[in-house]
Amino acid sequence: MNPENYLYLAALLFTLGACGVLLRRNAIVVFMCIELMLNAANLLLVTFSRMHGNLEGQIMAFFVMVVAAAEVVVGLAIIVMVYRSRHSASVDDASLMKL
């Protein structure tokens, strides 16, 4: 199969994720969309790795996965805390740097 198609898929996923970040209010959904964008980037890295025939892209993809996992831990914790105090997970409600 032509690897270029993976590139198109990655671009599509990234666009979907970006749109989700911009349009959705629910923090959890926004968060998932960010994951989507990260994975689109991962897909790109792996694809290019394949296209260029070296491993650097794949190594990088692993790094991204680790960072994404860490991010999920911190991000979800914040969202939970915000939800607890405001009883809402809308990102627009949290427009001030204080409670």
Binding site: A18, V21, L22, R25, V30, V91, D92, A94, S95, L96, M97
Partner: peptide, 13 residues
């Protein structure tokens, strides 16, 4: 600087 995360995101994109 209105505090809405999404508007920051727009400017980033």
């Amino acid at each position: 600087q209105n505090g809405f995360a999404r508007s920051y995101a727009v400017s980033m994109f």
